[in-house]
Design a protein around this nucleic acid. Structure first.
Lengths: 136, 136
DNA sequence: TTATCTGCAAACATTTTGCAGCGAG
DNA sequence: CTCGCTGCAAAATGTTTGCAGATAA
């Protein structure tokens, strides 16, 4: 056996582009689409190819570094995933603003339902979409 | 003013294609993608253009006749929205089996959260994914 | 050096749209 | 008869991929 027989850590190289994408994500709380990030970076002067943005975000999502949701328009939107405890978002369908929402009651309900049906290893995806006070 | 001054009811014509799409949706409980429905109809012998399927589903979604969710792959999936009381699905990630789940407690929690943040017209998408007893 | 990453552009999949003709009302 | 609906195919999105060259380790 070698010193490292765990192929599960495909460590990424530390490149300017990767840092730029990570930086753009770190700069905000909100969900951003790949194209938004690409535009944002170009704006900041960091030139990163669109494909690279996509590849980087995908890699980050695989590594669990970012959360991904699908907008109603069908685009993937990414956000840095710093929080340990699970929470969800209430998203305004007009301005896209996202409010973080905690739901202990909901979490409990979900586990209860899963257990009741004998399902194991249950995860959930929850999105609340509405019109926020400012956009009403 | 005319006898009907409510422009909010752009009544759709009753066509063979529209009926076919509605039929395909009525035939199942599950969410279907536009392309699946198109294939399904072709299979049944009803020939409906793909564009028409898209247009029809979109119209139905606008009219609130169907629910729409986005799959993780980014496609839109439609389901007839006949049920008065809202319910969700607990889906097995191995065999794909879906169990219907009711969640009055969850519904209440969702409305409460929405109200608390001043959001109006809030809808939610909830998916529970796990491994069912048979596939464990 | 060498394997990975990047950029570009072409390939892809899904959904939308323009236009001529069909068909419901 | 009229106007909306349909079908086809082309266009528009959003995302992925092949390849040659750049670059981190």
């Amino acid at each position: 056996m070698s010193t490292a027989d765990a192929p599960s850590a495909p460590v990424q190289r530390d490149t300017r582009q990767r840092r730029a994408v990570a930086g753009a994500l770190a700069a905000t709380e909100e969900f951003r689409s790949a194209q938004e990030i690409h535009a944002l970076l170009r704006d900041s002067g960091d030139k990163v190819g669109l494909a690279t943005v996509y590849r980087t975000l995908q890699a980050m999502a695989d590594g669990g570094e970012v959360d991904v949701v699908r907008s109603e328009a069908g685009e993937a939107r990414y956000r840095r995933c710093a929080v340990d405890h699970h929470h969800h978002h209430l998203i305004c369908r007009v301005c896209g603003r996202a409010v973080e929402v905690e739901g202990p009651a909901f979490e409990q309900w979900a586990s209860a339902v899963a257990r009741e049906h004998g399902f194991a290893d249950v995860t959930h995806t929850l999105e609340l979409t509405g019109t926020c006070p400012d956009c009403a």
